[in-house]
């Protein structure tokens, strides 16, 4: 987002509305998912300041109350407001997803581009690493990594990034490979640019659209993976509000009928993943219409 000049707010808003209208008209589903995405980002940014209750404050007098006007999503076993917790959790879940996707983009993207551009032993080493990661069921490998490196949010991010590495490395590799002898690369080489410079200034910017689509598509998976890890008790610790751990805490109450404790965080998780998947599909249709299935 750029800083809109204060003196011309109507112009900025009008431009945004115009562009949104164009996007929505182009593809209603993409428009819808973009709206959801804006909501999620809003909840992540301003959520903690606008929620009606302190997400950590317990009040045993109102424990396990079903959804009502005072507590929209009900209260949990300690009387904490589920609505406030779900909204506040958005920031952490969103942060984990963005951080892990950014990390895997840096690792996998660069390794893949290097493999595709230089070929030879670089290609073989990157390929071998990717193959080895792919030999594991991904969630299981993520469990093993977090168990070995230690139970923390950073390691959840790292594990999620590592299991996505092969995907990014492969796409970046094949995209870089078809461009290694492209006209613009030869032109850059003839004007005296070194290989590293060509990779960073010519090849990488050219494969960015496809990589960005990939990032959007894997955001959903990253959130699911992280929430799954915290559901089984890794990473985030109670009482921190996080969707996966909230579902885990509410799971025991599902069998006794207090459905709202696990339902709303699970629903938030589902909506977030759904939104990223739709957005990714929409972006892919715009960038690369041939891959549509």
């Amino acid at each position: 987002m750029t800083d809109t000049p204060v003196q011309a707010p109507t112009h900025g808003i009008a431009a945004i509305i115009k562009h949104s209208r164009y996007v929505i008209a182009e593809n209603k589903v993409t428009g819808f998912s973009f709206g959801l995405f804006v909501l999620i980002v809003l909840a992540a940014v301003i959520g903690p300041y606008v929620v009606p209750y302190d997400p950590l404050a317990s009040a045993t007098s109102v424990a396990l109350k079903p959804p009502s006007a005072a507590h929209w999503f009900g209260t949990d076993q300690l009387g904490r407001d589920v609505f406030s917790r779900v909204i506040v959790a958005t920031r952490l879940d969103f942060f984990i997803a963005v951080a892990s996707v950014a990390l895997v983009f840096a690792m996998g993207g660069l390794a893949g581009v290097a493999a595709g551009f230089f070929g030879g032993w670089v290609d073989r080493v990157v390929g071998r690493i990717a193959d080895t990661i792919m030999a594991f069921p991904l969630f299981v490998l993520a469990m093993g990594i977090v168990a070995a490196l230690g139970n923390s949010v950073q390691n959840i991010i790292l594990a999620t990034a590592i299991v996505n590495f092969p995907l990014y490395a492969r796409i970046a590799r094949s995209e870089a490979n078809i461009r290694r002898d492209a006209g613009f690369v030869q032109a850059a080489r003839l004007s005296g640019n070194g290989d590293i410079r060509i990779v960073l200034t010519q090849v990488l910017p050219n494969i960015m659209p496809i990589m960005i689509v990939q990032m959007s598509l894997t955001m959903g998976y990253a959130i699911l993976n992280a929430a799954g890890l915290s559901f089984i008790g890794l990473g985030v610790r109670p009482p921190t509000p996080e969707w996966g751990i909230m579902v885990a805490e509410g799971a025991a109450f599902m069998v006794s009928g207090e459905w709202w404790i696990a339902f709303f965080p699970g629903l938030a998780l589902m909506i977030a993943v759904f939104c990223f998947n739709l957005l990714g599909d929409g972006l892919r249709d715009i960038v690369d219409p041939q891959r549509r299935t």
Binding site: F231, M254, G257, L269, M270, V273, F274, L278
Partner: peptide, 30 residues
């Protein structure tokens, strides 16, 4: 297919437990 990939698997499981065990009583305790 789009909804299926978005559903966290532990969430689906819990919803099924609530519906078929707690509400309808068709399934045994999990």
């Amino acid at each position: 297919t789009t909804a299926g990939v978005s559903l966290p698997v532990f969430f689906t499981g819990l919803i099924l437990v609530y519906l078929f065990y707690y509400q309808l009583g068709w399934a045994p305790a999990p």
